[in-house]
């Protein structure tokens, strides 16, 4: 009900605001930028990573849940399960360029590694939808209940959809547009990591009901069998692998842990309050602290906090946009 009222208000505001296109502070194309999607107030925070400072903040004031950066490096796609469309903003101009009618329920969007497709996790249709970069829907693949996390292989030909409300992970063949494999995973799983060379699939989660997930489940990419469980309390939900190791973020205890190839914990750090997202640079990690509205900069090698920046209300996703040369 509350959400419905909020939605009505937002739609009303949208109608009012729709009369003239709002222009935000443009983000220069050449600037290396960290984009933070803040879901409590529907804003975007841009950090200038060259000068280590907050560059600007866009108050979109819409119920956005996440963003995805298109390969051109200047188009940012925004989505939210309460929005009936995805919005494409031009960062360099600070304007809304296009909107694609998708219907409600989009909770995640990723660009394929080959740069040809967009994949949407749609919780209303319980499907993964495949779009072209121009906004044309190329296909829809039914998966389990409430798909949330989307992972892909290096070539972008396989999509791994983690279903939140069903203990199943659906593997999709993009070419054939269908589910080719199902892997049993714990219920309420979220976040994951594909290690193609090691043929490993790491899956995190919140835990079902009162039970709290404290382990990372490692599966075989080939057989779908559970290989190992790594203790990482509580609620590990975000993973990144860099040359310094594998990093797992547990939001229940606000812990970041670092692992080596042998699943051994080589370091840990308590950071922020209820952090949900990470992004990796060359030597550093950026971590979004959801409850304290901060972004931490952490040294990957030594797991030490280097810096922190204020963000909008409720940072939920971090994206690094490399600086593009002006040509």
């Amino acid at each position: 009900m509350k959400k419905y009222v909020l939605l009505m208000m937002i739609i009303g505001l949208g109608i009012l605001a729709g009369c003239h296109t709002k222009t935000f502070t443009p983000v220069p194309l050449e600037m290396k930028t960290l984009i933070s999607v803040n879901i409590k107030d529907g804003s975007l925070t841009f950090l200038d990573l060259e000068n280590n400072k907050v560059f600007t903040e866009w108050k979109i004031k819409q119920p956005i849940k996440g963003a995805s950066l298109l390969p051109d490096g200047k188009t940012l796609l925004l989505y939210g399960n309460e929005l009936d469309k995805v919005q494409l903003y031009n960062l360099a101009k600070g304007t809304l360029e296009r909107e694609w009618k998708t219907g409600k329920g989009i909770v995640n969007a990723i660009v394929s590694n080959d740069g040809k497709h967009l994949f949407f996790a749609d919780q209303h249709k319980n499907a993964v939808r495949i779009f072209s970069l121009r906004g044309k829907e190329l296909g829809i693949v039914k998966v389990g209940k409430k798909p949330l996390t989307l992972l892909q292989n290096n070539s972008g030909t396989k999509i791994y959809a983690v279903n939140f409300a069903e203990p199943i992970l659906s593997v999709i063949d993009v070419q054939r547009k269908r589910v080719i494999e199902k892997i049993n995973i714990p219920k309420a799983s979220a976040g994951g990591l594909i290690r193609e060379e090691q043929k490993q699939l790491w899956i995190g989660g919140h835990g079902n009901g009162k039970e709290i997930q404290s382990n990372i489940h490692v599966y075989s990419l080939e057989t779908g069998k559970l290989l190992d469980m790594i203790h990482a309390p509580k609620m590990p939900i975000y993973f990144i692998e860099t040359k310094h190791g594998i990093f797992a973020l547990s939001h229940g205890t606000s812990m970041i842990r670092k692992y080596n190839e042998h699943f051994q914990e080589t370091g840990s750090l308590q950071i922020g309050a209820n952090p949900f997202a990470m992004a990796a640079g060359e030597q550093e990690l950026y971590i979004a602290s959801y409850d304290s509205n901060e972004i931490y900069k952490v040294d990957q090698q030594h797991l030490k906090i280097i810096d922190k920046f204020p963000s909008g209300n409720g940072p939920f996703q971090l994206i690094i946009r490399e600086g593009h040369s002006l040509e």
Binding site: H206, I212, M235, N274, Y290
Partner: peptide
């Protein structure tokens, strides 16, 4: 102290 009870997972729209 259960983060679930404290609405820590709320952004994930957990049915709890």
């Amino acid at each position: 102290s259960n983060p679930r009870e404290l609405s820590a997972c709320l952004p994930f729209d957990i049915d709890y």
